[in-house]
Design a protein around this nucleic acid. Structure first.
Lengths: 221, 221
DNA sequence: CGAGTATGTGAGGGATCGTTCAGTTTCTGA
DNA sequence: TCAGAAACTGAACGATCCCTCACATACTCG
């Protein structure tokens, strides 16, 4: 185990039932404190207090504060990556518009399962341990989407990896801005439809015109 | 002046020449410490030390640490908002593919002027004062892009505000992931072309089919 | 039952951080 | 020239914060 990983990896795993309860309480407490107080005020004291346990219990399972926060972030990102990988396997060989609709639906379902959690974890993803973890998770999802795109029945992509990265980024950006905005259940359906339209239109551009577009526009007029 | 704004607004403005030098040094020092140490280790002591000044000078111009960081973020976001507003004025009445190419070009030029700065400031934008500032700046840019889209000569949008928000988010997401990746000068031109393709394809979907797409695909096939 | 293990507790050490303020230096304008 | 204003300095204070450790409690299994 490398030095940096050792500092961010859980110390030991719970074997009895009550210890599993403790780590679960620490996870939810960390998220709650993160939402209410912000990352800079998300301290070990406050987390343990809200979890109803003691500081010592926290340090039995995590070597430091960042390890706990990274563990919470990892659970969040793993849920999204797994959902994307699953939908990408299911949609192999389909048409790209079907792929786009299924991908957006599953991505949003996983991301918006707990909007407060998703919103608060953006701050953790900006810290040193968070960016590395997010990079690993993004590699997984990009690979899955790229494999799906390569099997499309009605389009050819010269660089599936690039297109997958762009598509995931195009889904991530609007989702992030929407999470900062109003209640997510307000215009959720409208947002999903628009996101499907965005990804579909992007991928359909590769059906007819695999070359670049826009630098010397001579198109429809 | 409201209470929250008073805590994040600069204390006084420099009148002599050397004081302007001091605040400039504080700005660049804050960015450098932010890049090298991260937000949690970006302390007033380190900023003043790197700027070659003293702690006291910092507190003559900013009431607290966050005010300095927010000021740095504001300068960054204002540059981008101004660039977007300018290009949106210039492109009024044009075709949507011309609009997309110009918008992407100017946006990336402003955002990638100093990639290290842009990368580091994502963390500041996640703090309490940063999200408010980013929200205000996003309002400005969304309004500008929406006005431009409403004047397009070859497309009609039912909700220009929604489309502008989605397009800006679709530009922001991939840009953020690219900044975390390899050197920005590596495949910068390729990235810009792909981003133009993405936005162009999205807006062109409104030329022919202003309705939603993807929920019950009955399209090209 | 009882020895050994797993788990829980929280006061306190050591370090760092944000901020103040009394005193010094530099500049400006009459 | 010189008095007042502007700018600079950095030691020190109070407030946290992260984390350790000696000890108490709960559980397991022969």
């Amino acid at each position: 185990m490398s030095t940096v990983a050792a500092l961010l990896t859980p110390r030991k795993s719970p074997v009895q039932a009550r210890s599993a309860v403790t780590v679960g309480a620490l996870h939810t407490a960390a998220i709650q404190v993160l939402v209410r107080e912000g990352l800079s005020r998300c301290t070990t004291t406050r987390i343990a207090e809200r979890a109803g346990t003691s500081i010592g219990s926290l340090y039995q399972y995590y070597p430091n504060r960042d390890a706990l926060l990274v563990a919470v972030l990892e659970r969040h990102l793993t849920g999204i990556s797994t959902a994307v990988e699953q939908v990408c396997r299911e949609q192999r060989g389909r048409r790209i518009d079907v792929m786009a609709a299924a991908l957006v639906r599953r991505f949003l379902a996983a991301k918006l399962r707990d909007p407060e959690e998703a919103k608060a974890l953006y701050a953790v993803a900006e810290e040193r341990g968070g960016v590395l973890l997010a990079a690993r998770m993004r590699e997984r999802t990009v690979a899955a989407v790229a494999a799906m795109l390569g099997s499309a029945s009605d389009a050819r992509f010269d660089d599936v990896c690039l297109v997958a990265t762009m598509a995931l980024g195009a889904m991530f950006g609007p989702t992030q801005t929407m999470l900062r905005g109003a209640a997510p259940s307000e215009s959720g359906a409208c947002f999903e439809r628009e996101l499907v339209l965005l990804v579909t239109a992007y991928w359909r551009a590769y059906q007819s015109a695999p070359d670049r577009v826009g630098d010397t526009p001579t198109g429809t007029a």
